[in-house]
Amino acid sequence: MKWYLKVVKENYANFTGRARREEYWMFVLFNMIFAFAIAFVSIGLGLMTELPLLSSLYFIYVLGIIVPSLAVAVRRLHDTGKSGWFFFVALIPVVGGIWLLVLLITEGDKGTNAYGPDPKEAVPADVIA
């Protein structure tokens, strides 16, 4: 949960620097949990009250989370030594999505790279605990 909050609060639109695999994948996990929960609740409320406005809660959440999702993905690509523009490799049919997934799963560069210092070397004590 703290990784999700770190991305949303501290790095909302931060496209510079690097993000560890753990930060990225924990953000993705909690983002999916929240998205499914909000979709379930908003659809349920929309059906119970027959007000289509309530079913738009999910879309409001998605609009609010697009920027931090892109930012953490770009910082994750930076950790592997790739430019954030590599995110667009996903637009290549079939192979692109697989290639992007491999890039996001790959361990980051050891030490400093062109995008900043290794985030594993300077892990704050409160994140480890």
Rank of each mutant, 00 (worst) to 15 (best):
D79S: 06
M48F: 13
G44V: 09
G111C: 09
V94W: 10
L101A: 14
T106R: 12
L53G: 15
L91N: 08
L45H: 04
V7P: 03
A122G: 11
V28I: 15
L104Y: 04
D126V: 11
A73N: 03
I60C: 09
V7Y: 04
F87S: 01
W99H: 02
L29K: 06
V127F: 14
L103S: 00
P124M: 09
P119Q: 06
W85F: 11
M26E: 00
M32W: 15
S83D: 10
E50A: 10
F34V: 10
L103K: 01
D79E: 09
A35H: 05
E107W: 00
I66R: 04
D109R: 09
L63M: 15
V62G: 07
F59H: 13
F40H: 10
F88H: 10
I128K: 13
T80L: 02
A125S: 13
K9G: 03
A90Y: 10
P117H: 15
N113L: 05
W3G: 00
D126N: 11
W3N: 00
S56D: 10
D118P: 05
I43N: 11
E121L: 12
M26Y: 04
T80N: 02
K110N: 15
T80K: 03
I65E: 07
L100P: 01
P124T: 06
F87E: 03
V95N: 07
A122S: 14
V102D: 06
Y4R: 02
G116A: 09
N113M: 06
W99A: 15
V123Y: 06
F30G: 01
